[in-house]
Simulated scan of single mutants.
Amino acid sequence: MTPITKLVLLIAVAVLVFWLVTRLRNSTRRDRVSFRPVEDLPQDVQQSIDHALAHDKKVTAIKLYRQATKAPLDAAKAAIDVREWKRG
C-alpha cells in the first residue's frame, strides 16, 4: 500500500469514528426533563409551594419541591413552572 493510500484510509477511519461518536452522543442526550408533578406530593407540601408561588417566591417554591423530592434543580424548576402554569 502506498503512503497516500494509507493516509486516505486513516483519514476515512478517523472521520467514521468521529461521526459514530457524535451520533452516539446525540442519541443518548436527554433533552427532556422528567419530574414528579406537584399534585403527587403530600397536601402540606402542595400548600407550601402554592403559598410561595402566590407571593411571587418561585425560588422558595423550587427549594420546597427539592426538599420534598430530592429532585435535581432542572426537574424542580420544570415541576414548579408547570404548577405555576396550571394555577394561571
Rank of each mutant, 00 (worst) to 15 (best):
R30Q: 12
S34H: 05
A71N: 07
L10W: 09
A61Y: 05
R30L: 04
L7F: 07
K70G: 15
L20V: 15
K57E: 14
A75S: 13
D31N: 07
S48N: 10
F18P: 02
A79V: 10
K63Y: 06
V82I: 02
V17S: 06
V13P: 02
Q43M: 07
R25E: 08
L10K: 04
K58R: 14
P37Y: 12
V33W: 15
D81Q: 03
R36E: 15
R36F: 04
V59D: 03
V59E: 07
A76I: 02
V59A: 05
V8E: 01
E84M: 11
T22P: 04
D50I: 13
K6T: 00
V13T: 14
A14V: 11
Q67R: 09
Q67W: 03
T69G: 13
I80A: 00
R66S: 07
E84Y: 03
H51L: 15
Y65M: 01
T5F: 07
A71V: 00
A54Y: 02
L24F: 07
L73S: 10
Y65K: 08
Q67K: 10
A71E: 09
R83L: 04
L9I: 10
A12S: 14
P37T: 11
Q43S: 12
V45P: 01
W19Y: 09
F35W: 10
V59W: 00
W19N: 06
A14D: 08
E39T: 07
V38T: 14
S27F: 12
K70V: 11
Q43Y: 08
I11Y: 01
M1K: 03
S48R: 15
S34W: 05
K6P: 00
I4L: 12
H51T: 05
D31C: 05
P37D: 05
S27M: 11
F35M: 07
K63S: 15
Q67P: 00
V21S: 14
A14Q: 05
A14H: 05
R83S: 01
A78P: 06
T69P: 12
L73T: 08
T2F: 09
D74G: 02
D40V: 04
V15P: 04
D56T: 14
A14M: 14
R25A: 05
I11R: 03
L16V: 13
Q47N: 08
R29H: 14
L73A: 11
V17E: 06
A68E: 13
I62Q: 08
H51S: 12
V13Q: 04
Q46G: 11
L41C: 14
E84F: 03
R23G: 15
L7T: 14
D74F: 04
N26V: 04
A12D: 05
R23L: 15
A68W: 11
A78L: 01
V15S: 01
V8N: 02
Q46E: 13
H55T: 00
E84N: 12
Q47W: 01
L20M: 04
W19E: 08
L16P: 06
T22D: 12
K77V: 07
P37I: 06
R66Y: 06
S34E: 13
R32E: 14
A76T: 02
